[in-house]
Amino acid sequence: VDSVSLLSTNTPPPGTLAITPSTDWNSSGSTGGPFTPDTQQYTLQNTGGTSINWTASKTQSWVTLSATSGTLAAGASTSITATLNSSANSLPAGGYNDIVSFTNSSNGGGNTTRNVALSVVGPGSLSVTPAENLVSSGSFGGPFSPSSKQFTLQNTGTTPLNWTATKAATWVTLSSTGGTLDAGTTTTVTATINTNANSLNAGTYSDTLSFTDIT
């Protein structure tokens, strides 16, 4: 009597965790927020043949994960969202980093990480040059010399700012009294001794020019 035996060793491949996208998450914004982009979605897929358990973790308080663990059947997928939470609004200007770790806690297959980079830029900062005052002199009725002085306003910060320029005396005229400066840009304001000065009696007169960042 002959016999036939069949031994099957066809076992499914172990579960493997795959994460997309493969790129890092880079976000930026001004101090206090908002930040762009403020979220990043990751897709977790089990590309193997057996079920796996997974975990997701991060290290920084300014990142929140929509889910931190779960189970994926063979071939199944799910998504989690990483979000910059309100703690990011309290960060001072600077560069910050975090790492989101994805772990196959069943067998380790496909364990990986994704970097998070957050750039917080500081506010605009108004600089005015030159530091010297406008000192003018002349006879009653004019003319006065020098009759004007040019001031350069520069935004030395990293975000736009709004500015104003003011004076009090009627014998001073400003070429501009306000505007907006983008980061790194400059503009000029000229203070001029106008014809009202021709009516001033002999004496010494003064005024104050004020340049203000009103952002």
Rank of each mutant, 00 (worst) to 15 (best):
G75N: 10
T113W: 01
T83F: 02
L44W: 10
S57I: 09
N85A: 08
T59V: 10
V120C: 03
L126K: 03
N97E: 03
I80R: 11
N115S: 14
S119L: 14
Q60W: 05
W62S: 09
T78W: 05
S105L: 04
S77C: 05
T55R: 04
A56G: 03
T103F: 04
A82G: 06
P92T: 12
A56C: 01
S86E: 12
G75S: 11
V120M: 07
P123G: 14
A88N: 06
S61W: 02
W62M: 03
D98N: 10
Q60E: 15
R114K: 15
L84K: 10
L44R: 10
Q45A: 14
A76S: 15
I80E: 04
T78Q: 13
N89F: 05
T50M: 04
N53I: 01
T103R: 15
L118R: 08
L65F: 07
G49E: 05
F102A: 11
N111G: 09
P123Y: 05
N97I: 03
I52N: 03
A88T: 06
S69L: 11
I99R: 13
A73N: 15
N89W: 02
G70S: 09
L65W: 05
A76G: 07
T50W: 02
S86H: 02
T78R: 11
G109F: 05
S86I: 04
S125W: 01
G124L: 13
T81H: 00
S119T: 14
S77R: 11
G70F: 01
S61T: 13
N115T: 13
G109Y: 03
S66A: 08
N46I: 04
N85C: 05
T103G: 01
Y96M: 10
A56T: 10
A56L: 01
G48Q: 12
G49M: 12
N97S: 15
A117M: 01
L126A: 02
G48E: 11
A88Q: 06
T50A: 12
S77I: 03
P92L: 12
N85I: 04
S57D: 14
G122S: 13
S51Q: 15
S57R: 01
S87D: 14
A117V: 04
N111D: 12
S51E: 15
D98E: 05
I52P: 00
N53F: 01
F102L: 08
N85S: 08
W62F: 12
T64L: 08
T47L: 09
I80P: 00
V116D: 04
S66R: 11
T71F: 09
I52C: 04
I80D: 01
S69I: 04
T71A: 13
L44H: 09
G48Y: 09
L126G: 03
G49Y: 12
